[in-house]
Design a protein around this nucleic acid. Structure first.
Lengths: 199, 199
DNA sequence: GAAGGAGGTTAACCCGGGTTAAGAATTCAT
DNA sequence: ATGAATTCTTAACCCGGGTTAACCTCCTTC
């Protein structure tokens, strides 16, 4: 869908015009390659088996990125909110089928750009390549920290970390999904919460 | 320590001369910036708090990369063997203090190159940059798969995966370290193994 | 060959998470 | 407002991992 200029969040504009010092021409060039996708709550932006062909900026809404194991259990790798960029990292860079699902947790407005277009744009606007390289780097560090956390903390500690870092999350994400993020079953999260509230 | 040409493993030579088609001059240039470090068993190649200033090729030996949590428990992120490159990823790229330890599990011979030298060499030999970018990419995917695995598999399943993928590991790594890799205590690994052998 | 140390196993007990099912609370649709 | 559906909580039971301590190898080392 065509992007209506009035749809774009101020944060997005600040990012490119303010922080990255894009000229108006550069910004227009970028926008001309982006599409607006409206993803209704519960529908999928990406399914495992498909190829992640584009990056999407979350203009509004939030998503969960998860995998399904052999016992059909869903494991949420992370939630994404406004001002995040989403894609299946491995699939995007290898253009092989994704192993993850990305599902809208609320009605989402996504500003999307195809990999082939972005690759070309990065040639024309080096700032853009720099920006996404930085993003990539941060993504890697975040994943490693995540791994460290999952390996060394109990579900209770991870729960406490989560509410410390993202207190807002409980207003937007149903509890069963928080449980799937913590890799425990909903009854366990319930027990954990009641255990904590008694302290 | 100076590198004696006869110390270098055939695998290392095959990698640069065979696969990457380095000319003799390029290979000599690379070697002229590399040092041989001999790390005795149990001593540390890197400690948390220090900066990971170089990459090291494992010519011989193996290491474990681990973190220590608040309860002083060690969590092994991965083991590394011959023909792997080691460094604390985050520390190397940010030049900030590392959060991980790298310890020799056997007497190790490491072929080391400083970040500043490698950065300069990558300018002169683009193949080198390409090679390490590929390595970096693979490292990311491996970390993500690792995270997926830790989130979705039981310790028993992770144990079975480990012996399937690296059957040799048990000949070189004492069991208590395997337990630390699986994030369980040594008695649990013992029980798990006796449980499995009865089946 | 005795003493010490490191690595691995076993036993007993505790506790938290999985499982299942039932019930309570909320949300949603008509 | 009412009923249905979804979400969350609670209870009961099982089981696997943590903890601690004892014990058993096997290997050093003097």
């Amino acid at each position: 869908m065509e992007i209506n200029r009035s749809d774009i969040s101020q944060t997005f504009i600040n990012l490119f015009i303010g922080e990255l010092k894009f000229t108006d021409e550069e910004f227009e060039l970028l926008l001309s390659h982006m599409n607006l996708e409206l993803i209704p709550r519960k529908s999928f932006y990406l399914k495992a088996g498909n190829i992640s062909k584009q990056k999407a900026y979350i203009n509004k809404g939030c998503t969960r990125t998860f995998t399904v194991d052999e016992k059909d259990r869903e494991h949420i790798m992370f939630f994404s909110f406004e001002d995040w960029w989403i894609a299946d990292f491995e699939s995007y860079y290898t253009q092989q089928p994704a192993r993850q699902y990305i599902q809208a947790m609320e009605d989402c407005e996504l500003l999307c750009i195809k990999k082939c277009d972005l690759d070309r744009l990065e040639e024309q606007i080096p700032k853009l390549r720099f920006f996404f390289n930085e993003k990539k780097q941060k993504m890697i560090f975040a994943t490693m920290n995540n791994l460290r956390e999952v390996k060394s903390l109990t579900p209770e500690e991870r729960y406490l970390n989560l509410i410390k870092k993202h207190p807002h999350i409980f207003q937007r994400i149903p509890q069963q999904y928080i449980a799937a993020y913590l890799d425990i079953e909903p009854p366990s999260l319930s027990r954990l919460r009641s255990r904590l509230s008694k302290k």
